[in-house]
């Protein structure tokens, strides 16, 4: 099971789209850190208010949002159509898992006074849920099910 999984990961690395995705992701994450640092350390957030504060606070979120566009671009640029199908399935599983968590936690917040889940956690959960998508792919491939 793991051998097949690792072979698939290695095959993925050979696709030029993967290298481009990793480079773009690194730039986006670096931008996130730089913008976050700049906003928190260089701007007087405590003294700011109104639209200016909103814009300043939203800036670090832009590189995080960019990651989702990078994933879409990666899927589109993949040369290997079977690999593309696996990536789409992985993304759909991650979306389903994240929306399920968000929906259930949301109703728990409304009706059971569960502690508030910051919305910034949603993209983080989605990104982590990609691992579940990868696992689903691995299991379905192992079981020999039609894609």
């Amino acid at each position: 099971m793991w051998k097949a999984y690792l072979q698939r990961r290695r095959a993925c690395y050979r696709d030029p789209a993967h290298g481009r995705y990793v480079r773009r992701l690194a730039v986006a994450m670096l931008l996130y850190l730089v913008v976050l640092f700049a906003v928190k350390r260089l701007l007087p957030l405590d003294d700011m208010q109104g639209p200016l504060l909103w814009i300043a606070a939203a800036l670090p979120g832009i590189p995080v949002a960019a990651v989702f566009f990078l994933i879409v671009r990666y899927i589109v640029e993949l040369r290997d159509e079977y690999r593309r199908l696996l990536e789409v399935r992985k993304t759909l599983v991650a979306t389903g898992v994240t929306m399920t968590i968000a929906s259930i936690w949301g109703t728990m917040e409304l009706l059971a006074h569960a502690s508030h889940l910051p919305t910034l956690y949603i993209p983080v959960i989605w990104y982590l849920a990609q691992g579940i998508g990868e696992f689903v792919n691995m299991v379905l491939e192992r079981r020999g099910e039609a894609a």
């Binding site: 050979r14 696709d15 040369r79 290997d80 159509e81 079977y82 690999r83 199908l85 491939e141």
Partner: peptide
Amino acid sequence: LDVSRQSVNAIEKGRYDPSLPL
């Protein structure tokens, strides 16, 4: 074919039907 070995394996075992261009 300029695809991954996994693609060939999936097509060969009937798990994946290739697109018309492929």
